[in-house]
Nucleic acid binder design. Structure first.
Length: 415
RNA sequence: GGGUAGAUACCGAAGCGGUCAAACGGGGCAGACUGUAAAUCUGCUGGCUCAGCCUUCGGAGGUUCGAAUCCUCCUCUGCCCA
């Protein structure tokens, strides 16, 4: 067996062992193909918001692994398809976004994708399907692409079938989505030499449609599909979603501190899986971290949180978040306040927690916390919702420590 | 275009003239127990200047002392027919 072939197999094995692979077409053929030298891979990202959330980290990490293995990666932002909305895995019609909004979202996405893969070399390039759909006529598209699709077969496809039979219906615009995605793949096959498309398992039908289209139109059988498993937490919740919303990669939406905490608080049963998927640590090192189980997993969780935060927000922020999580004063999330605001009668305790420190949604939220006995100022339990915070509550360094529940802590610092 | 069913808080879902800030379940938050885990138990879960007040039941009007509940119109969605 030659080296190239071994490398190709190793790469696939690694991806499998790390939990990236749910399904793939023609594994033998794919190894064969990868062994021939650097290939190109594409994964689509929907520009439905101006930031990605951590559910998108699976595809991003997959691209990063492939790039590190020497392959060319093509993150595709769906400037055109975003205008339609993929029905896959959705139970209802997605709301349509304006072209302007999508353009703005794409800018945000580009920056974030860059944290996972490097654009410095020629082996990565962001592509936007709006570039090749923009000038295309409907008639031409129907004739060249549409005729290769059997409606019968599409309806049998789970993605469409569920919607077709479900309560919310499926409208024509969404029904076209698969054709667009298939066309994307074919276009990138021709123009960028892209041979592999990866995506979430809900994309399986769409990706295979592309593989099919390439075979029918171009007569080529060296296009491959690989899908990732749908990542859920062990409690079944979709990855990266909390009641407050998603965990975003954008620091303005989810602070590095909160981001770190999300990973730090992952359930025991998810640590091993997440370390493999969301960090670049060697598998042997991961095995080491998790082998003792039980309480020892806390160290693994901290490592997980640190590594993931480092990838997304950089090492400095990761270090800071780690120190903050350990309770070190200097790294605690801090709100700077004016001394004059706390003169005399000071500020009402409700106001301090809800408005100034933004640790609670409303004053009512703070009241409830007080009632439940979970609100602290300088580690002293607050019992009176009418109480207030004055200069006397700040120590010599001008610090005052607020705590909401066990985990939410902030420091107020006098300016 | 015709018919029909529906639109309730974060989600699902009761309520069908006053006792409704709205049952119940999920989720979430807090407390106890713990390991910043899980499981379990308890409390909370619209807003506020909080024993009181204000705004919510798709939207706009109307009936009534009183409407999430009745009437009219509108918007959206499902289903059936054309």
């Amino acid at each position: 067996m030659n080296t190239e072939r071994r490398n190709a197999m190793d790469l696939l094995e690694t991806l499998k062992k790390r939990g990236f692979v749910e399904q793939m077409t023609d594994e033998a053929g794919l190894i064969e193909h990868l062994a021939k030298g650097p290939s190109s891979v594409y994964i689509g990202f929907d520009p439905t918001a101006d930031s990605l959330h951590c559910g998108s980290m699976v595809p991003l990490m997959a691209l990063a692994h492939l790039q590190r293995a020497g392959h060319r990666v093509l993150p595709l932002v769906g400037g055109a398809t975003g205008l339609i909305g993929d029905p896959s895995g959705k139970t209802e019609l997605r709301k349509l976004l304006s072209a302007e909004q999508i353009k703005k979202n794409i800018e945000g996405l580009k920056e974030q994708i860059g944290r996972f893969i490097s654009f410095e070399k020629q082996d990565a390039k962001i592509v936007n399907n709006a570039d090749w759909f923009a000038g295309r006529s409907y008639i031409e598209f129907l004739r060249d692409v549409g005729r290769h699709f059997s409606v019968n077969r599409m309806l049998a496809n789970k993605t469409y079938k569920d919607r077709f039979e479900g309560e919310n219906g499926l409208n024509f615009i969404e029904f076209n989505y698969q054709l667009f995605q298939a066309f994307d793949f074919m276009h990138l096959y021709k123009e960028e030499g892209c041979r592999i498309q990866m995506g979430g398992n809900d994309q399986w039908g769409n990706i295979c449609a592309g593989v099919d289209l390439i075979r029918r139109v171009l007569g080529k059988d060296d296009a491959f599909a690989v899908t990732f498993p749908l990542i859920t937490t062990s409690s079944g919740a979709k990855m990266g979603k909390t009641a407050d919303g998603a965990i975003w990669l954008d620091a303005a939406r989810t602070s590095p501190h909160d981001f770190f905490q999300y990973w730090r608080n992952v359930p025991d049963t998810d640590v091993d899986r997440f370390l493999k998927l969301f960090t670049f640590l060697e598998l042997s090192e991961i095995a080491d971290l998790t082998k003792d189980g039980g309480q020892a997993l806390n160290a693994a969780k901290e490592k997980l949180a640190f590594e993931v935060t480092k990838i997304v927000h950089g090492e400095a922020e990761a270090n800071k978040a780690k120190s903050g999580a350990r309770g070190e004063v200097s790294a605690m999330p801090t709100v700077t306040v004016n001394k004059s605001d706390f003169d005399g009668d000071g500020q009402g305790i409700l106001n301090v927690f809800s408005k100034i420190a933004e640790m609670a949604k409303s004053n009512g939220d703070v009241r409830r916390a007080i009632q439940g006995g979970g609100l602290y100022v300088n580690d002293e339990k607050v019992t009176d919702p009418k109480g207030s915070l004055t200069l006397a509550d700040f120590n010599d360094d001008g610090d005052c420590f607020l705590r909401f529940g066990k985990k939410k802590k902030k420091r107020l610092k006098l300016a």
